[in-house]
Design a protein around this nucleic acid. Sequence first.
DNA 1: TCTGGGGTCCTAGGACCC
DNA 2: TCTGGGGTCCTAGGACCC
Length: 418
Amino acid sequence: MTTLFALVDCNNFYVSCERVFNPGLEHRPVVVLSNNDGCIVSRSNEVKALGIGMGKAAFEVRDILTRHHVEAFSSNYTLYADMSGRVMQTLADFSPAMEVYSIDEAFLDLSGIGQPPADYGRQIQHTVRQWTGIPVSVGIASTKTLAKLANKIAKKSPKAAGVLNLADSPFLTQALQRVAVQDVWGVGLRIARKLNAAGIMNALDLSRADIGWIRGQFGVQGVRTVYELQAISCYPLEENPQDKKTIIVSRMFGRSVTAIDELMEASATYAARAGEKLRQEGLAAGMMSVSVATSRFIEHRYYNVHTTVFPTATFDSAELVQAATASIERIYREGFDYKRAGVLLHELTPQEYVQRTLFDTADRARAGRLMRTLDAINRRGDCTVRWAAEGIDKPWHTQFKHLSPKFTTRWDQLPVVS
DNA sequence: TCTGGGGTCCTAGGACCC
DNA sequence: TCTGGGGTCCTAGGACCC
């Protein structure tokens, strides 16, 4: 059976979201920053042209940003998540089978569309733009890896204008040749270096590499990548993503923290947030690992982690918060400038399959009702009800100095047309 | 002064078993 | 002095992704 995949990828997604509600930003250099306004995580084409790399620390390029009047925004995840939902909903109309791959990408199954794939791609591009305001690129091919590659070329090539079909294309060899090996899906920096050292420079070279050597050097993933470049599909469309295996809430602080009670507040806050995510997924956690760390960029470094095992898997934030603060007592050491804390939930099981231990006395039904009520209240506003352990002022809180309004999810922040 | 966050999969190696 | 072989399970860490 022949396969046909489209990869639809939003262009400069976070920047594009900001532009939808602030059209004055069109054709101007714009960046979106990571948490704490630390790194550049989304760049407009104008900024890419300035040579500012993805993931660059903002303070390192401050001069260039100022000189070119670059508009900078803090990450507005609420807005981006909502816009992502709109894009995905639009895409769902174009295929009976879709895999949401990330916040700004989806694979569509295009086998059996009954019209030229490139034309269909144009329709997708046009419709998403019209319905959501977000520009997208579409790459089409017979495997996911080739669809990713087609998408990459579609974005850059003026001739493709955002849509490229490589399935049954006479230009496939040419396309493979012009993509550097490190730009192939599944090839990162380390693997690219090794490949380059072996004289494998572009995707075409990789598609013709010796499979035994690849297996020995890079394992089964490497082999799959090579096959996928040869148009042999190894990665099927994953329509129903399996349950999450881990849930992480981890943040850098807005300033360094030395006191144990501030670390406790932070870890309690993250544990409560992790609990919300957990319940949203309908899961319960068997284990929780709490970690603290100093900056990676200083001499006097410290990192430690403590793991709590819950005898009965839990989705009760009270239990998570309590365990989190207890963990901090175990791993806190005086005399360090802490810069980050994190909570990792693992051993996740669906709530309905939770095995209770013989000695479990907790009233889980009651806790469940309490959590549902809590979540419902907090969904309406921003953290209306909080755990006392989280603290009130949160002076350590991650910074977002350039945040745009929650245009689409809060009545009081709707854009006003005058 | 300032350097993100949230995930997955695979492999190697140790513990343990027969 | 001799000191197997194979299997499973678990964990840590590497590599990748966006």
